[in-house]
Design a protein around this nucleic acid. Structure first.
Length: 681
RNA sequence: UGCGGGAUAGAGCAGGGGUAGCUCGUUGGGCUCAUAACCCAAAGGUCGGGUGUUCGAAUCACCCUCCCGCUACCA
């Protein structure tokens, strides 16, 4: 840690209290944060580790409505599940608070007020959709309608997932509220915006000072600031009744934007932990602020929150934001809604006492530089061939031999051979071999060095063969075993940040009180004749059946969650006359080719019987050009031509779309009886 | 569309101008204290593709392909 800082405040992203915690959260944020903090504690740094549940925002109110309970009941439930799971997993928060509590409301409110009084906000009146039945304004995501660009009837208010275009909710045709299904009305509303556009130069200067941040983080920040129109003003209040009330006149029915209030949660939690000296950590230049987050949070922690802190004026800014990428599960994105996840609270139940197995797996396979994949097979391999075979086995060999030769009494090291000296020299290098990468947030490298220490131990035993020597040179064996025990002691010390449960067990095998990092350099941690504890296996093998069980579980949730058949409701009634206006023909595809620089588009040449024309169709995901030459399709022939990607499309191919959004041609079944130009009616 | 990150042995990753490296897996050997564990050795890569800069490129520049993410409320 840079010497210019006297203390460190580490925060881990406040998990959103609408679902439990899964391995993605852990690998991305909580585990690296915990390892870092435990390390800092071990070297004697002044550090506080802050977290809590993020309990505001629209999704929680929706969930409450769906389940017929209050938002408070929703957050109470998940706050407990998450807090308990973190605790049992060994995430060593100094405090796990929550944003629905009083301290936080007060703190967030004061913070807003301070910015408000300084003129830090701009007021803007905008028109927003309002659901009269549900009596609330609608976030863009809770409005669906027909996409004005591609006519997809299930576009969201912020984006059409079909054609990928970014939308405003007001662009949608036939907008509907997903809350009540009713038709929302436009209503004027006033909100307070943080003028990020004006703050851009300050923010840019701040980011430029931190080019040492991880490439993914620094790159993202630069990208936001420099690309396009730069930063845009962003609303810091919302029309909603669940959250921190906006503390100014004329703001009834408004709360702070959840992303305004959430990071302030770090401050509130610190206050709660240290009512008297929380300012030491937040308002003192000798304090270092570090945010652990996942990559989706980069913009809030690197741009918006620092901007808020700058404008407030009394706070230190984040010194580093070591965001990780994402973790996939068995090759697919983790998804809460599809239940494609390994939930921490379930793991803890199904793998009792095996916290460190998951910690080891998630750390050594952490998505530090790019997205990574978690597979159960890997977890089994890592457990069986690394934790069991290398670390567990070395410790077991050492403890067993000590009991066998000396009844558990630590033998004295008398004379060191050259071989011993080399091993001791190597041993002495490990504290820094591990701490150096840790201080640069390279957790994978650090934990692999830890395993190398166990390898060193195994090799030493294999090279010196004390079980043979005991017959010929008892004196020499004493030294060997003493050194093996010293290696074990160092493993106990150095494993603590990564594998705290293992570390604890090791100290109890050794029958000494836990030691901190600085002791790893000492050679007298185990006095001669000190009696060590009984052997016990450090890690158990994980059998194929256990892995199969987990895979089966995932398979099941896939089955249960895949269909989600939401058949769109029938459209409004139409007439035969109106239908007759559509001139639908059978045609044959003569040519087909990909439209360059697009994912979905094919350029088709179609013989419609009437003529041969060009049609651009968004079907490239479902049909390969070479496979569809000569295929008969239905085409809406009298649709007004339209330019797509610079090509004039003269008609539209009719497609059947299933609930999964997969497309298929609508074709006549009697091919020989339907000549090109046949009318569909 | 724009932007960011990534592509290196069967798998997972590190390296960022000068004999291509680690872990796991595989194969052969050694050992038997130890959870069929441990130790040694070997095989395995034209470092996504192309062009260029250079005495020399996995590394720098330009172009291309593919994966992931962001484009403003799911780590």
């Amino acid at each position: 840690m840079p010497n210019s800082f006297k203390r460190t405040l580490v925060t881990a992203a406040l998990p959103y209290a609408n679902g439990p915690v899964h391995i993605g959260h852990l690998a991305g944020c909580y585990l690296p944060a915990d390892i870092y903090v435990r390390y800092l504690r071990s070297i004697g740094s002044d550090v506080k580790f802050i977290c809590g549940s993020d309990e505001h925002g629209v999704p929680i109110t929706i969930k409450a409505k769906k389940e017929g309970i209050t938002p408070q009941q929703v957050v109470d439930k998940y706050h407990k599940i998450m807090g308990d799971a973190f605790n049992e997993f060994g995430i060593s928060f100094d405090i796990y608070s929550r944003t629905s509590n009083k301290t936080h409301h007060q703190t967030a409110s004061d913070f807003f007020k301070t910015l408000y009084d300084k003129g830090g906000f701009t007021e803007q009146v905008t028109e927003q959709y309002y659901d009269e039945e549900a009596k609330q304004f609608l976030a863009d995501r809770y409005i669906t309608g027909t996409c004005p660009k591609c006519a997809n009837p299930n576009a969201y208010g912020d984006q059409c997932e079909k054609c990928g275009s970014t939308l405003n909710a007001t662009d949608l045709i036939d907008a509907r509220s997903t809350l009540s299904g009713s038709k929302p009305v436009l209503k004027q509303t006033k909100n307070w915006f943080l003028p990020l556009d004006k703050l851009q130069p300050k923010i840019k200067a701040y980011i430029d000072l931190h080019s040492n941040w991880k490439p993914n983080v620094y790159g993202q920040c630069k990208s936001w600031i420099e690309s396009g129109d730069g930063l845009q003003p962003r609303a810091m209040t919302r029309d909603l009744d669940w959250g921190v009330k906006v503390p100014v006149a004329g703001a009834d029915g408004k709360v702070l934007y959840v992303w305004f209030d959430a990071p302030i949660g770090y401050i509130s939690a610190t206050k709660e932990l240290l009512p008297n000296n929380w300012k030491d950590y937040w308002q003192n230049k000798e304090s270092r602020l570090i945010h652990f987050i996942g990559k989706d949070n980069i913009v809030f922690h690197c741009i918006i929150f620092p901007a808020m802190l700058m404008e407030h004026g009394e706070f230190v800014l984040p010194d580093n934001v070591p965001a990780n990428e994402f973790l996939n599960l068995e090759g697919e994105k983790i998804s809460t809604s599809r239940n494609w996840a390994v939930w921490l609270h379930e793991y803890l139940q199904e793998f009792k006492g095996q916290q460190d197995v998951l910690r080891y797996m998630l750390c050594s396979n952490a998505p530090e530089t790019k997205d990574n994949d978690f597979t159960w097979k890997d977890l089994q391999t890592k457990n069986n061939s690394e934790l069991v075979a290398i670390l567990g086995n070395f410790v077991n060999r050492t403890v067993v031999l000590t009991h066998k030769f000396y009844n558990g009494k630590v033998p004295a090291a008398e004379k060191f051979s050259k071989e011993d000296m080399i091993v001791l020299e190597e041993l002495a290098k490990f504290p820094s071999k591990i701490s150096e990468p840790l201080e640069h947030f390279k957790f994978r490298e650090a934990i692999s060095e830890l395993m190398n220490l166990a390898r060193l131990g195994n090799k030493y035993l294999a090279d010196t063969e004390p079980w043979k020597l005991i017959k010929t040179d008892e004196e020499r064996v004493k030294t060997i075993m003493n050194i093996a025990l010293q290696i074990t002691t160092n493993l106990a010390i150095l494993s603590e940040p990564f594998l705290p449960f293992t570390s604890k067990k090791l100290f109890s095998f050794l029958n000494i009180n836990p030691l901190t990092w600085l002791f790893a350099k000492k050679t007298n941690n185990l006095p001669t004749n000190h009696v060590i504890g009984k052997e016990e296996l450090l890690f158990a093998k994980i059998e194929d059946e256990q892995i199969q069980l987990q895979l089966q579980k995932l398979e099941n949730s896939k089955k249960e969650n895949t269909p989600a058949p939401s058949i769109p409701p029938q459209k409004v009634e139409t007439t035969f006359d109106e239908f007759s206006k559509m001139d639908i023909r059978v045609g044959t595809i003569l040519e087909a080719e990909r439209v360059p620089k697009t994912d979905k588009l094919l350029k088709l040449k179609i013989d419609t019987g009437i003529d041969v024309r060009t049609v651009v169709s968004g079907i490239a995901e479902w049909y390969k050009p070479e496979d569809i030459i000569g295929v008969q399709v239905s085409i809406l022939a009298n649709l007004a031509p339209r330019k797509i990607k610079g090509i004039e499309s003269q008609g539209m191919i009719l497609m059947a779309e299933n609930t999964q959004g997969e497309l298929s041609f609508v074709v006549p079944t009697k091919k020989d009886k339907t000549n090109n130009g046949s009318i569909v009616k």
